[in-house]
Amino acid sequence: MTETPSIPNPISDERGLLLLLLDNQRTAFRNALSGLTEEQARSVPSASEMSLASLLKHVIDGEEAMTSRITGTPRGGGEDPVAAWMAAWNVTDDETVGVLLARFGEAQHATEAAVAAETDLDRDVHLPADVARWMTPGVAYTVRYLLLHQIEELARHAGHADIIRQSLDGARADTLGLG
């Protein structure tokens, strides 16, 4: 069954639209994982080194990092953000699809709360130099930019997820929940 976005329709403002677009991409991820076993979700069936589970963990980490930057809430551990980014590709034995999907839902709710509480989408958000070097140069890192970048990242990786899912069993993420 297709996941229904948690954002009410009709969308009449920019915040709602940005959250809806994020949620559309989250739904693509959930659909790509629909009905798979743990072994399938962790497998690497294509030329890429990515599995659906590692992609999911990566996008969760990216969303959590974005939300923590928007809210100014430091992430646990105080570790190097680049090292954290690299580690987010590695799925541990205890990070089952169910655990990761629950964390995905928590990240979604945290993002929605942060966006609802934000008074100015044009507010500059500080990015450490070792993070900013991976971002688009010459732009202001505003709340709006970070949300749009997260949509971009989710869309890019939802496409990867679709290819991986097709490589596993021929199913397409965009049609898995229709029926």
Rank of each mutant, 00 (worst) to 15 (best):
I7P: 00
E152K: 07
A158T: 08
L56R: 05
S48D: 11
N90A: 13
P45I: 14
S12M: 08
T2W: 05
A114Y: 03
G78D: 13
G159Y: 15
L147K: 06
L19C: 02
E118H: 05
F104P: 00
E63V: 00
M86K: 13
R30M: 10
A32V: 01
G159F: 11
T111M: 07
N9L: 14
T2R: 10
T142H: 07
W89H: 08
L146C: 03
N9R: 08
L36I: 15
D122F: 04
P45S: 11
S167V: 11
I70K: 03
D174N: 13
P45C: 12
G138D: 09
L176D: 11
E106N: 00
G35R: 08
D162N: 12
H157L: 07
T175S: 10
V115K: 01
T136Q: 13
V91L: 09
D23R: 01
A116V: 07
R15W: 00
P128H: 02
L17K: 08
S167M: 15
E152N: 10
K57S: 12
S46F: 08
R156K: 15
D122N: 11
G77V: 14
L17T: 10
R26P: 00
S46Q: 08
L154W: 10
L19A: 04
R69W: 04
V139Y: 06
V131S: 02
D61N: 14
T175P: 01
T175N: 07
E152T: 06
T71F: 05
Q108T: 05
S167K: 14
A114S: 07
L18F: 02
R172V: 12
P128T: 03
L18V: 03
S68I: 05
R42I: 13
A87G: 05
G98T: 03
R144W: 10
R69C: 05
Q25A: 02
G62I: 04
D23H: 00
A132V: 02
E39F: 08
E106I: 01
V143A: 13
G179D: 12
H157R: 06
T73Q: 15
T37M: 07
T175V: 10
T37P: 00
L33M: 15
A117L: 08
A47I: 15
N24T: 01
D162Q: 15
R165L: 13
A87H: 04
H126V: 09
P8N: 03
Q166R: 09
V143E: 14
I70R: 03
S46W: 09
A84W: 03
Q150G: 06
R30S: 11
W89N: 12
Q108L: 02
R165T: 12
W89E: 10
